[in-house]
């Protein structure tokens, strides 16, 4: 793999967009905090118009523009969005690692795949070509957002992932904590579980 180079003017534009979005999220977060009375982390809703879902992000979490991709890469996958607690600077500082990925450690991920054959969640989650496979992974039936889903723990791509079918498309909703050396100090698995649990398919 060659060194990663990014187009600086584009990066500046992206940073500006993120800054505006972060300002908005902070305002929303402050409002949410004022309305709560217990030690519940403030959350903000993230709505994905492109992939058709929403999640609740605990305070400090944001959508990573750098790690999200809404393009196809020759498979059934439509795109994915990544949620991180790293700051932009922190994230940029660990992008160069080509291994399992410092930037990808302790992130939540929502993927959308086309499912023209109408696979069941369990069939998809246990197909090695579609979902991959890891020794020791556990697969079980679960429910997410009211849908019968398949939950895979310690799989090859996610620490926990739910496969959620929805009329010709399959969502993969999960998180990664499989590179503990790269854990951001403020990240918690509880936050990631909460993000996943809040997943909701929007009409």
């Amino acid at each position: 793999m060659r060194p990663i180079r990014r187009f600086v003017p584009f990066a500046a534009f992206v940073a500006a967009v993120i800054a505006v979005a972060a300002l908005g999220a902070a305002t929303l977060g402050a409002g949410a905090l004022a309305a709560t009375h217990g030690p519940v982390a403030p959350t903000g809703a993230y709505v994905s118009q492109t992939l058709g879902y929403e999640v609740q992000l605990p305070s400090g979490w944001r959508r990573s523009t750098t790690l999200s991709a809404l393009v196809r890469n020759g498979t059934l996958k439509v795109g994915h969005e990544v949620f991180t607690i790293r700051s932009l600077a922190d994230e940029a500082g660990v992008l160069g690692d080509p291994g399992p990925g410092a930037a990808w450690s302790y992130v939540g991920v929502v993927e959308q795949w086309r499912d023209p054959a109408g696979w069941s969640a369990m069939a998809w989650a246990t197909d090695p070509l579609l979902a991959g496979w890891a020794q020791g992974q556990a697969v079980e039936t679960a429910v997410l957002d009211g849908h019968v889903a398949a939950k895979v723990t310690n799989g090859p791509r996610f620490s926990v992932a739910y496969y959620v079918p929805d009329g010709g498309r399959m969502y993969v909703v999960g998180y990664k904590v499989d590179a503990p050396d790269w854990k951001p100090s403020v990240a918690t698995e509880a936050d990631l579980r909460a993000i996943v649990a809040s997943f909701h398919i929007t009409p």
Binding site: I4, T75, P128, L129, G132
Partner: peptide, 11 residues
């Protein structure tokens, strides 16, 4: 470990 379901990647 086994993942083989993706197409062309990117930088």
């Amino acid at each position: 470990r086994y993942v083989a379901g993706f197409g062309i990647g990117s930088c």
